[in-house]
Design a protein around this nucleic acid. Structure first.
Lengths: 213, 213
DNA sequence: CCTACCGATCGGTAGG
DNA sequence: CCTACCGATCGGTAGG
């Protein structure tokens, strides 16, 4: 009988249960859970995804995700938060650049489209479509980030207005644009038809008026 | 003491169990189930709504919806189908009218906004947000109607193009518009800010180019 | 992180 | 359409 997974006393302390310490490995496993949860929540919805689905997708047993997260809801919150933090980073980099207004806007649209359409980018779609499944107290934590994201867009719209490229930078216009871009998640198929880049061009052309040069 | 809902033996035969016959009352109860299901599916999602929720909302016991529908999925399909049939009626009435292109488009946007935003109009939002929860065979039945609806929009866009109000009637433009309008379901609050009518005006102005007169 | 488990709930059914 | 029920599954936990 060969010892297979025997906890032989080796040099690297094997798998000691941490009391308060969070190891590097813990963080990696947590990140794995967030990543696969994003994919599953997007594909099947929060309510349609079981903790067993999530555990299975990273090779854990059904109870183990609760070592990393207190509840299933906390996993959802983590998915949304990760998406927003990444999206906010991209957005601020673009807003802070010295591109001319139209190019800045195009970069923003393109960046957002990638956030919604590129492979493995399931965080923001989950935010958009599973918001209702998040309990109010967890929503509150996310809303702060969400507001920042919206404010960046509004800022770029104000620039566009000043440059005379749009007539209005109202909240309504921002929401209409946002809706148009977000809805691509429902119909865009990677590898078929337009590239994300081409789609960004078409969207910008549409938003800024097709007749305008 | 006035008789209120007492099932006194009147002329109309009371509550005989039908074998194959579907009575008028059956149809009413079925319609009740579809209506409350639309509301619940919109509020809590298909997976987040239980058959007991639905039954309770119309004063039935938990097993009784299955007298009217074979499965929970069939209720979802009925909700979507009812929404599409109603929406398609409105749309065809507008497309068939003799309004000038811009006014026809405005009527279409307004009609769709009402379909998405007006009180009790939960059918199309459910179609938009719970599509993934519908099994492929039931989806197939709905897609036919969905294609018709899309075709009507495309037709109006072609008219707009001919009238010189837009440059393109590409599928992409239609989907961007559709996304912008549909997303209003996520942020529009009845009784606060713009009326549905005003929102339709703003949207049309945005879609057709704000700079254009 | 696994094992073993629990109470609650769920969609659906038989029989009337 | 109700009563009574079932098998399956779910989120979560204790203890190691």
């Amino acid at each position: 009988m060969q010892k297979k997974t025997s906890p032989a006393p080796a040099k690297r302390a094997p798998r000691k249960r941490p009391l308060v310490t969070v190891t590097e490995e813990d963080r990696n496993r947590r990140a794995d859970l967030v990543r696969v949860s994003a994919r599953l929540f997007r594909e099947k919805g929060f309510e349609g995804t079981t903790v067993r689905d999530i555990a299975g997708a990273v090779g854990m047993r059904s109870g183990s995700p609760f070592y990393h997260f207190k509840t299933k809801q906390d996993i959802l919150a983590a998915v949304m938060e990760e998406g927003l933090v990444a999206g906010l980073n991209d957005t601020e980099r673009i807003v802070g650049s010295d591109l001319p207004p139209r190019e800045k806007f195009r970069a923003l649209v393109r960046s957002h489209l990638e956030t919604v359409l590129a492979e493995g980018h399931d965080f923001i779609p989950v935010l958009l479509y599973e918001w209702r499944s998040l309990s109010p107290d967890l929503q509150a934590r996310i809303i702060t980030l969400k507001d920042k994201y919206d404010a960046r867009w509004q800022q770029v719209l104000a620039d566009l207005k000043q440059a005379g490229l749009i007539k209005s930078d109202s909240k309504v216009v921002r929401l209409l644009m946002f809706g148009a871009v977000n809805y691509t998640a429902q119909w865009y198929k990677r590898g078929k038809g337009l590239s994300i880049d081409q789609l960004a061009d078409q969207a910008v052309e549409f938003f800024l008026g097709e007749a305008a040069d």
